[in-house]
Nucleic acid binder design. Structure first.
Lengths: 225, 225
DNA sequence: CTATTGTAAATTGGATCCAATATCCAGTAG
DNA sequence: CTACTGGATATTGGATCCAATTTACAATAG
């Protein structure tokens, strides 16, 4: 074999058109750019990406498997919407799993990771642009979680969060959620720095369930309009 | 509208060919009929079902999203295999979520449901055919879970179980797992009948983690061959 | 005027066709 | 004999075509 110095990129694992479309649609749904119940026309999406409908259909099939869209035979795909009960359950689920995840992560957390998390918490607290809050919030928590050694747990949490992110946004923006989140992040961070796993877990659970209550009651008032 | 008495089946929600293929492949993988690493040829599957490759590809895309198959660009799909660490993590995850689920289910469980669960436990204990153990085991547990009022939790548990079912089978069949399972089922059932939610949760966790240890050590000895 | 029927347009889902990539194997140079 | 090249074959992924279903709407009957 020749000792050729090339930055060889593995072409075989480059994203396919279907991957690109899947990711774009997923993000649009998670970010709330595509509203609940909005229908997704294969033709339209295909022309946006300059491909035929085949890769679009693959992307939609995958999104349906994730529960982000719902399709009815011969009628097409719409962005899935969640009932209040479903949203509440997702938060409960997150509280359960994220509590467990941070417990395992915190016991052996590195100073480096703590510094990273601190930076995100501060960036979150200082950010004036509400569009970036959700992203920084997610980065903060995931940084604390990432050394838990449980990739499957993280993946499941991530999928759960994907399904409620667009509702959460409302909670942060419209219900003074940021002020409280800021405080609670500080508490979680402090517990993590003290390597107090149980405390970090308890605070994380409370953080998630508090956001849930706030969001649910907000949505309940909205619903009556 | 005419008052016509017809057993009207909703044709619109009949399973599409893609659905049928997805379900068949999923079951084959979960039941272990398709082995780890086995490659799935689109053409072959298509001719088995007398369709073109298009619905097969949709089914495979959905299976990949579930993590049951893995595809490499232009190389095709193979049945995903899990490392020991991944298997162990799945059990941990199940212990966490199923513990929570049974806790909520047991507090208000009906006598009717308890009787059902008891029947499955007895059928499991009495069943001579090892091929049906896994199924009866699953029915027993799910019966106890079903009134927890948390459909998403159950769905996630179900997906996790799908991914490890074929390994679990080995644990039941090859490691005297049934004898222990029988006893542990009795304990869980007793706790449920006493409406002792915490006890039922603790026993369920122990049941799952015990099976995990047994399976992992079995797989470790296997691995050395 | 309302309810129903029939038809045209839009859309989805599957089949077939084609291009791109991988795999296998024979041929060839060293 | 071994290592590499080049082409045949197999397979995947996308484009195009077609059938089936839904939807919108006009025509018609009551």
């Amino acid at each position: 074999m020749m000792a050729l110095k090339l930055k060889a990129t593995n072409l075989g694992s480059m994203p396919s058109p279907a991957d690109v479309i899947f990711e774009a649609l997923r993000e649009a749904i998670v970010e709330g750019e595509l509203k609940d119940g909005e229908t997704l026309r294969q033709d339209h999406i295909a022309s946006l990406f300059n491909v035929s409908r085949i890769p679009v259909r693959e992307a939609l099939a995958r999104l349906e498997e994730q529960g982000l869209v719902t399709t009815q035979r011969h009628k097409g795909a719409v962005v899935s919407s969640l009932s209040l009960e479903e949203i509440a359950e997702m938060f409960e689920f997150r509280a359960l799993v994220e509590g467990e995840v941070i417990r395992h992560a915190v016991s052996g957390i590195s100073d480096r990771t703590l510094a990273e998390a601190k930076a995100f918490a501060e960036a979150f607290a200082a950010e004036p642009d509400s569009a970036r809050w959700a992203q920084l919030n997610r980065l903060f928590h995931y940084t604390l979680y990432k050394d838990c050694g449980r990739p499957y747990h993280l993946q499941v949490v991530s999928k759960a969060l994907d399904k409620i992110a667009r509702y959460l946004r409302a909670q942060l923006v419209l219900t003074h959620g940021i002020a409280r989140a800021r405080q609670e992040h500080e508490g979680i961070l402090r517990a993590a720095m003290a390597r107090d796993a149980d405390e970090a877990a308890a605070l994380t659970r409370a953080h998630i369930l508090g956001a849930s209550r706030s969001l649910i009651s907000f949505l309940q008032t909205q619903e009556k309009l």
